[in-house]
Design a protein around this nucleic acid. Structure first.
Length: 489
RNA sequence: CGGGACGUAGCGCAGUCCGGUAGCGCACCUGAAUGGGGUUCAGGGGGUCGCGGGUUCGAAUCCCGCCGUCCCGACCA
C-alpha cells in the first residue's frame, strides 16, 4: 500500500487486495497459530446471517439440529478405506490428556461422518426410524499446508448435514434437494451465481458414491467450490453397521448423504462483489443494511440531525417490527470524524446503503440515499422511507446478482476449442471453459499437470451446451461428458 | 516440505551494507477550531529492535543457531 488510505487495486494484485479487504474491513485477523484466524464481529455478523438463512431452509425441509463431539477415536476414521486415505494427511491428533498419554489417540474431527453414522447405528432398528435428517453447526480442523483467510484455514466453521434413508433413490433425492438449497442460497442471498453439477471421480469426497457441488467464478477468474452434497451410498453404513429392517422384513444397510457449506463462503462473497473501494455485502446478507451518517456544524444542528437519525432507526429498525419489515440500521455518531471519512469507512466495510442527513435535508424533510454498488445518490422524502428502503435494497440485491452473472458469463467459453487455445486460455485470462471429456482419468490428470486447470464439475442439464461437445479436450476421442474446466482455489 | 521475501511502537516502514545506545508516517490520548467525500493546529503517551548464543570497550546493525509470518509450488471446503 503506497497510500495507506487506499487499497491495493484488484488489477494490481488480487491476492493482496483480498487480504487487505478482509483485514481492513475487520472481517478477520490472523491468530497466533499458523493458519488460524479470528473471525471478528464484522465477519461473524455475515456468517450469522448465513447461518440463520440456511438454518431456516434446512428446517423448512424437515431437518433438525444436533451436536456431535469434537473428538473422534482414531480407529473410527480408519474404518472406511477411501475416507481414511482422503483425510489421514490432514488430521490433528490428540495424544495426551490429563497429563498422560492416551491409550488410543483421538483425532479432532475433519468432518463427522464416522462418529455420526456410528451413533445412527445405535438409534436405528427399522425402516420406521428412517429417514434421519440431522444437521450440525460445528468447527472442524484440517491441517492444510497452505492457508488463506476464510478460503482455507486449519480450523473453520461450517454446517454438516448427515442423513440416513431406506433407499438409494431417497438418498439421491436428498442429495439433490440440498444442492438446490445451496444454489438458491448462493444466488438469492449471496447474489453469487453458481454452476451445479457432478464432481469427477478424482475430485469427489473421499468415501462418497458421488459428489455434487456449487461452483462460482471469482473476479480473478479462478473457481471457488462453495458447497458440496454427497450421496454416500452404503459405504459408511456397511462399515458402521447401520442396518434397518425393511418393510419386507429384510435386514438392509441404510443409504446416507452428507452435505456442507462453510465460512469459506465469506471469502467467496468478498471475491464476488468486492471492488477497489472494499467489500460489498448484498442487502439480504448484510448485518447492517443501512448506515446513517449525520452531518452538522453547530451544536444545535448536531442535536437536530442526530435526533432525526435516531428516530429513523427506532422507527424502521424496531425489534417490535416483524423481521421482514425491520431494517438493520446503524447510526454513525462517531465524534471527531468528518462525514467524508465516514463514507470511505462504510464503503470499505461494504454496507449496501448510506443515508446522509444534514441540516438542509431536515429542512426539506428528506435524506440522501447513496448506493454502495453504483454510487448513485437520490434524495428520499423521510415519509417514504419505510416503503422506499425495502424496494431500493431489493433492487440492489437483484443488480448485484445480475452484475456477477454478467461477469461470469463474460469469462466463460463454450463451443469447440483446440488444445492450444485451451492452454492459452488457462495461461492467460482464465475463467470457465466448457469442453468435452472422454471420461478417462488420465486425460483429466494430464490437463491438470499441463495447465493447472481441473474439472470443476460435469454440469447439470440446465448448464450444458447445445450442441454437446463432440470430442475430448485432451485426447480428441469422442466425448462422454461435458466438463467445466477452470483453475480453482 | 522445496523456492523467495520478511521480522524494529497498534499498523506500515526507514535505520543494517560502513557497529556508537532508535526514528518517520498513520493510528492513539488531551485541548481548540473544523464538519455536505479521507480536517487543521498545538501538546502528549507508547519500542526487552522475533528468540538464544557468539564477536566487540560497545550490536537493531557483524557471525552461528532457532522460531514465526507472508508470497510462489506439491495436498485441499
Amino acid at each position: 500500500m503506497a497510500d495507506d488510505k487506499k487499497l491495493t487495486t484488484r488489477a494490481a494484485d488480487f491476492s493482496a487486495w483480498y487480504n487487505e479487504v478482509v483485514l481492513r474491513a475487520e472481517l478477520a485477523d490472523y491468530a497466533p497459530v499458523r493458519g488460524c484466524m479470528v473471525i471478528r464481529p464484522n465477519g461473524y455478523g455475515i456468517w450469522e446471517r448465513m447461518q440463520r438463512i440456511l438454518d431456516d431452509m434446512f428446517k423448512a425441509t424437515g431437518h433438525v439440529n444436533a451436536y456431535f463431539p469434537l473428538l473422534i477415536p482414531q480407529s473410527y476414521l480408519a474404518r472406511e478405506a477411501q475416507h481414511v486415505e482422503g483425510f489421514a494427511p490432514e488430521l490433528a491428533v490428540v495424544t495426551h490428556g490429563g497429563g498422560k498419554e492416551l491409550e488410543e489417540p483421538v483425532v479432532i474431527r475433519p468432518t463427522s461422518e464416522t462418529i455420526i453414522y456410528s451413533m445412527y447405528a445405535k438409534w436405528v432398528q427399522s425402516y420406521r426410524d428412517l429417514p434421519i435428517l440431522i444437521n450440525q453447526w460445528a468447527n472442524v480442523v484440517r491441517w492444510e499446508m497452505r492457508t488463506r483467510l476464510f478460503l482455507r484455514t486449519l480450523e473453520f466453521l461450517w454446517q454438516e448435514g448427515h442423513t440416513a434413508h431406506a433407499t438409494h433413490d431417497e438418498a439421491e433425492e436428498e442429495t439433490r434437494r440440498i444442492l438446490g438449497i445451496y444454489r438458491t442460497f448462493m444466488e438469492q442471498y449471496m447474489a453469487m451465481p453458481v454452476i451445479t453439477g457432478l464432481k469427477s471421480e478424482s475430485e469427489k469426497f473421499a468415501g462418497a458414491l458421488r459428489t455434487y457441488a456449487c461452483e462460482a467464478l471469482m473476479q480473478d477468474n479462478k473457481a471457488l467450490q462453495a458447497g458440496t452434497s454427497h450421496n454416500l451410498g452404503q459405504n459408511f453404513s456397511r462399515v458402521f453397521d447401520l442396518r434397518f429392517q425393511s418393510v419386507e422384513g429384510r435386514e438392509e444397510f441404510a443409504w446416507n448423504t452428507s452435505w456442507g457449506v462453510s465460512t469459506r463462503m465469506v471469502g467467496g462473497l468478498v471475491m464476488t462483489h468486492g471492488d477497489d473501494k472494499g467489500l460489498q455485502v448484498p442487502p439480504r446478507l448484510a448485518p447492517i443494511e443501512v448506515v446513517i451518517v449525520p452531518i452538522f456544524r453547530s451544536d444545535d444542528e448536531r442535536a437536530a440531525v442526530l435526533g432525526a437519525a435516531h428516530r429513523l432507526r427506532d422507527e424502521l429498525g424496531s425489534w417490535e417490527l416483524p423481521e421482514n419489515r425491520r431494517r438493520r440500521i446503524h447510526v454513525d455518531a462517531r465524534e471527531g470524524m468528518k462525514p467524508g471519512a465516514k463514507y470511505y469507512d462504510w464503503e470499505l466495510r461494504g454496507v449496501p446503503l448510506r443515508l446522509e442527513i444534514g441540516p438542509r435535508d431536515l429542512a426539506a424533510s428528506q435524506c440522501v440515499a447513496v448506493r454502495r454498488d453504483t454510487g448513485a445518490k437520490v434524495p428520499l422524502p423521510m415519509a417514504d422511507l419505510a416503503a422506499a428502503l425495502p424496494a431500493l435494497l431489493e433492487q440492489m440485491q437483484r443488480d448485484l446478482l445480475d452484475a456477477a452473472r454478467a461477469r461470469r458469463d463474460a469469462n466463460t467459453v463454450r463451443g469447440p476449442i483446440t488444445w492450444d487455445a485451451f492452454r492459452a486460455r488457462m495461461d492467460g485470462p482464465g475463467g470457465f471453459v466448457y469442453a468435452g471429456w472422454c471420461g478417462a482419468a488420465a486425460c483429466e490428470a494430464a490437463v491438470k499437470e499441463e495447465t493447472k486447470a481441473t474439472i470443476r464439475c460435469l454440469p447439470d442439464p440446465e448448464f450444458q451446451s447445445t450442441p454437446a461437445p463432440a470430442t475430448c479436450l485432451k485426447c480428441g476421442a469422442s466425448s462422454r461428458h461435458e466438463a467445466v474446466w477452470a483453475k480453482a482455489y
